[in-house]
Every structure is written in structure tokens, then in C-alpha cells.
């Protein structure tokens, strides 16, 4: 759980809000794909993220949670609805204003092997955002990158290495450094620890929590692992077939799930019945 205590969570301002998001995919179906079917990836999804807190989006594969992440960051167009960041409708911004806004909204991806360009040095990967947004002189950017690498538990010298020289956990640290070097306000983490061993997972979760406290970050944390969510999130939404079936505080939902689907998910957590 993040360090926002219950009291301040109630009073914290909303930093990111989604209202009535709809997104439909058309998929070819049938043998040879001659017919087509509509898939509702997001079906009237609304949520709000409070500043400094962590909101988990939980669901099984195909529930629409990754689509939601991409729509929130305007990486994917949606059919209707709005996403408000600090009260501003992101869809109404023109290209350059949206680009400027993007430094506040960053993403940490699931697969640390696929999400880092193998031909770029780590320093270039982490510093690319600074370059694009024109933040600081070349030497300032270099310093920032080195500081950020050290902050996430790597060394300043690692800036000269390539991604393949690192383990999965280290690559995820690079991904986190890349997202945080711009000092964003909101970070969407899409299954950031699901490809990692448990001990590495614990390191990365602790790192994310520390950085949240230091940099006053707000997280949207996408996950299928309800045990991880219990540890990192303040609030959660449960998605099923594109709809939000339940939302509220993590503690409340784990103690007293209201919907049958949530109960089913929670009772399927391995190790519960034996404990």
C-alpha cells in the first residue's frame, strides 16, 4: 500500500479521471476470417485516481485492462468518453499540447525484454524523453540520467551498456528509470512484475513504493495477480469483459467482495484454501 494514509486518501484531489470510456474492436472470425464480430474492450468504464495513491486495475486476460491503460494515456483512440488529467480533457488538446502533457503521464511496460530498444544504449533509452521534451542542456540531461539510474539501483556507468547486458529485474529498473526521469505525475504500470521471479518482484515493488513517496507519484497498476495488488494498491477496480464490476478500497474489497465475480477471483488465489 502506498503511504497515503486513509484520511488523506479521502481528501486527496483527483489527478486522473476517466468518464464513460467505450472502445470496440472489430475482429475477423469464423474459419478463414470471412465474417467479423465486435468485441467490446471497454464498455462504459469510469474511474478516478487520487493524487499520490495507487489504483489497481484487476482482471483476467481479455478483460480489457491493457486497453484501458493505453486509452488513458491516449496511446489508443477510444470510441467515446473522456479522460481528464488535472481537470483537462486530453482528447481536446492539439498535438503539441498533448505532447507537452505526455511528460506528466508515463508508462512502465510488462515485458522488460521487448520494451527496450536493443540497439540503443541504456543512457539513450532513459534520456530520450529529456531530449524530446528539450529539458536541460546536454550535460544536465546526462547528469539526470545518471542520477536516475543510481536512484533505481543501477550504476551511472550502466548508461553506456546495452539492454542485453542486463537481467530481467535490472531491465525493469531501466524501464522505471525511463518513465520517471521526466518527473511525471501519473505512471501507468502494466503488469510490471509479472515476468519476474518472486524475490526480484519484491525488490521492484519496494522500489515503486519508495519512488512513489519521494516523487509524489500516482500509479495506475494493471495486474492479474491479486496478491501483488493487495500489497501495492490503495484502491482497485475489477474488470470483467470490458466492464468494471466492482470498485473501492482494496481492504474493503478483499474483506467483503460484493460481486460474485470478485468473490470467484479472490477464492481462486492459490494458497488460500490450504492456509
Amino acid at each position: 500500500m502506498s503511504l497515503v494514509n486513509a484520511q488523506s486518501l479521502e481528501n486527496a484531489p483527483v489527478i486522473l479521471q476517466a468518464n464513460h470510456l467505450f472502445k470496440t474492436y472489430t475482429q475477423s472470425s469464423g474459419r478463414f476470417g470471412f465474417s467479423s464480430s465486435q468485441i467490446k474492450a471497454l464498455d462504459d468504464v469510469s474511474l478516478s485516481l487520487k493524487a499520490g495513491s495507487t489504483l489497481a486495475v484487476v482482471g483476467e486476460s481479455g478483460s480489457g485492462k491493457s486497453t484501458l491503460a493505453r486509452c488513458l494515456l491516449q496511446l489508443h483512440p477510444f470510441d467515446s468518453g473522456e479522460v481528464l488529467f488535472e481537470g483537462k480533457d486530453l482528447a481536446k488538446l492539439d498535438t503539441s499540447a498533448l505532447r507537452a502533457m505526455r511528460k506528466n503521464l508515463q508508462m512502465v511496460f510488462q515485458d522488460p525484454f521487448a520494451s527496450l530498444n536493443p540497439r540503443m544504449r541504456v543512457g539513450e533509452i532513459v534520456g530520450e524523453g529529456l531530449l524530446i521534451h528539450g529539458l536541460g542542456s546536454v550535460s544536465e540531461q546526462k547528469n539526470k540520467v545518471q542520477q536516475m539510474l543510481e536512484r533505481v539501483g543501477l550504476s551511472a556507468d550502466d548508461a553506456l551498456k546495452y539492454p542485453h547486458q542486463f537481467s530481467g529485474g535490472q531491465r525493469q529498473r531501466i524501464g522505471i528509470a525511463r518513465a520517471l526521469v521526466l518527473q511525471p505525475k501519473v505512471v501507468v504500470c502494466d503488469e510490471p512484475v509479472s515476468a519476474l521471479d518472486v524475490s526480484v518482484q519484491a525488490q521492484i515493488l519496494l522500489l515503486l513504493k519508495e519512488l512513489q513517496r519521494e516523487m509524489q507519484l500516482s500509479y495506475i497498476f494493471i495486474s492479474h495477480d491479486l496478491r501483488v495488488v493487495r500489497h501495492i494498491a490503495d484502491e482497485m477496480v475489477v474488470m470483467h469483459k470490458g466492464k468494471i464490476v466492482e470498485q473501492g478500497k482494496v481492504v474493503d474489497i478483499y474483506n467483503e467482495p460484493k460481486q460474485a465475480y470478485t468473490r470467484q477471483l479472490l477464492s481462486a488465489i492459490p494458497g488460500r484454501k490450504a492456509a
Binding site: V198, S199, V200, A202, R227, V228, R230, H231, V251, R272
Partner: peptide
Amino acid sequence: KALLACVPDAEGKNQLKPI
């Protein structure tokens, strides 16, 4: 012991101590 200590549990009790 160390491996068990870094496993997240559904009750949120474990401290998630990395190895």
C-alpha cells in the same frame, strides 16, 4: 525462509523482504 518472506500474500501481511 528468505524465499517465503518475499512472497506477496492475499492478506497483505507479508513484509515482501527481497532476498
